[in-house]
Simulated scan of single mutants.
Amino acid sequence: MQGPTGTSIINPAVLGKAADVRQEFVSAPPFPHVVIDDFLAPDFAQSLLDAFPAFERGNAMGDNGELGGKSTVDKVRGLGAAYQRLDDAIKSPEFLQALGTMTGIDGLIYDPWYLGGGTHENRNGMALDPHVDFNYHPSERWHRRLNLIVYLNPVWDQDWGGCLELFRDPHADHRPSRSVSPVFNRCVIFETSEVSWHAFDAIRLPPEHEGLTRRSIALYFYTKDRPAEQTASRHTTYYVNRQLPAHFAEGRVLSRGDLAEMKHLLEMRDGHIRMLYSENTALREAQDRGLTGHLLYLAKRAYVRFRR
């Protein structure tokens, strides 16, 4: 059963230093964020891991419409008592107030649909390019303000990759400003904005651990308003392909590892281009359907004929 308040899932030691957490959050480069170890009450964190869904249970469809190495479950209440308790807690006024105290963002709203969130699981070889997230809730007029990620990996080494990366500007920077290993019960909270560039590097598990996966719970929070200087037109998630590593320089003799890395980067870029072409085609097909599409067709036809 849930404790007396929604904050019962949080480690009391974290609640006791909320002011320090807030100071770290607002002052951290490259954009407001904080990393908190042992974030959840230990027994509760373990119960979430114990009830974490099997990879095959989740949605493993990639952005390109093909089955991939990432699986997500957004219907968290169907995952058992531990996840029901999580859901009850994070929508409570006590939890939202505590999160607001730790970040300085008031009026936070819980997303009952977990759009884009829920449980996330990534297999060996997976990576995520730098991106900024969609900035409005897809169905509500809410501004997306915070990402809260809790990692559930009791066995993990930073050398295995899968580290959350925070970038100042991925268009220019070869390396992230900060890299965070996804170890068990570590929480990362960061402000969602037009400059909150984040990613994770490729998972590279050693042979003796190749059956492991990278597990996390992603929670997103919104507000009805946000400061005008931070407000932008509605957009979807915006990706940037990684830059070539700095060691790819004139005169360097490429190793086998260098060639593999370059091939991987080109494959990621090609995949991104294919996805954009697919989205463009889908938009054009939607545009061509219905009355608006027909009127647009007639207008284009008239324009072409007039030019001749």
Rank of each mutant, 00 (worst) to 15 (best):
Gly3Phe: 03
Pro4Ile: 08
Gly6Pro: 04
Ile10His: 08
Asn11Gln: 09
Ala13Asp: 03
Val14Ala: 15
Lys17Asn: 08
Val21His: 00
Arg22Leu: 00
Val26Leu: 11
Ser27His: 11
Pro30Leu: 01
Pro30Arg: 09
Phe31Ile: 05
His33Trp: 06
Val34Cys: 15
Val34Thr: 07
Ile36Val: 15
Phe39Cys: 05
Ala45Cys: 12
Gln46His: 03
Leu49Val: 11
Phe52Val: 09
Phe52Asp: 05
Phe52Trp: 01
Ala54Cys: 09
Gly58Asp: 08
Ala60Ile: 02
Asp63Ala: 11
Gly65Asn: 06
Gly65Met: 09
Glu66His: 13
Glu66Gln: 11
Ser71Cys: 00
Ser71Met: 03
Gln84Arg: 12
Leu86Asn: 01
Ile90Tyr: 11
Ser92Arg: 01
Pro93Cys: 06
Phe95Ser: 11
Leu96Tyr: 09
Gln97Trp: 11
Gly100Arg: 04
Gly100Lys: 00
Thr103Leu: 00
Ile109Leu: 00
Trp113Glu: 15
Gly117Cys: 12
Arg123Gln: 08
Asn124Gly: 10
Pro130Ile: 08
Phe134Ser: 06
His137Arg: 14
Pro138Met: 08
Ser139Asp: 07
Trp142Asn: 13
Leu148Gly: 08
Val150Thr: 15
Leu152Arg: 10
Pro154Arg: 04
Val155Lys: 02
Glu165Leu: 01
Arg168Gln: 02
Asp173Cys: 06
His174Val: 06
Pro176Gly: 10
Arg178Ile: 02
Ser179Leu: 12
Ser181Phe: 04
Ser181Cys: 09
Asn185Met: 01
Asn185Arg: 04
Asn185Glu: 02
Val188Met: 01
Ile189Phe: 01
Phe190Trp: 06
Glu191Cys: 04
Thr192Gly: 08
Val195Arg: 12
Trp197Arg: 12
Trp197Tyr: 11
Trp197Lys: 14
Trp197Asn: 04
His198Ala: 00
Phe200Asp: 06
Phe200His: 13
Asp201Pro: 01
Ala202His: 01
Pro207Thr: 05
Pro207Tyr: 07
His209Glu: 15
Gly211Asp: 04
Leu212Ser: 00
Arg215Ile: 07
Ala218Asn: 13
Leu219Pro: 05
Phe221Leu: 08
Arg226Cys: 15
Pro227Ser: 07
Arg234Leu: 10
Arg234Gln: 10
His235Trp: 15
Thr236Arg: 14
Val240Cys: 14
Asn241Phe: 03
Leu244Cys: 03
His247Gly: 01
His247Ile: 00
Ala249Thr: 15
Glu250Gln: 08
Gly251Gln: 05
Ser255Phe: 12
Leu259His: 01
Ala260Cys: 00
Glu261Cys: 05
Glu267Ser: 13
Glu267Pro: 04
Arg269Ile: 13
Met275Ser: 09
Asn280His: 10
Ala282Asp: 04
Ala282Thr: 12
Glu285Lys: 13
Gln287Arg: 15
Leu291Cys: 12
Thr292Val: 14
Gly293Tyr: 09
Gly293Trp: 08
His294Gly: 07
His294Phe: 15
Leu295Gly: 14
Tyr297Glu: 06
Lys300Phe: 13
Ala302Pro: 00
Phe306Ser: 09
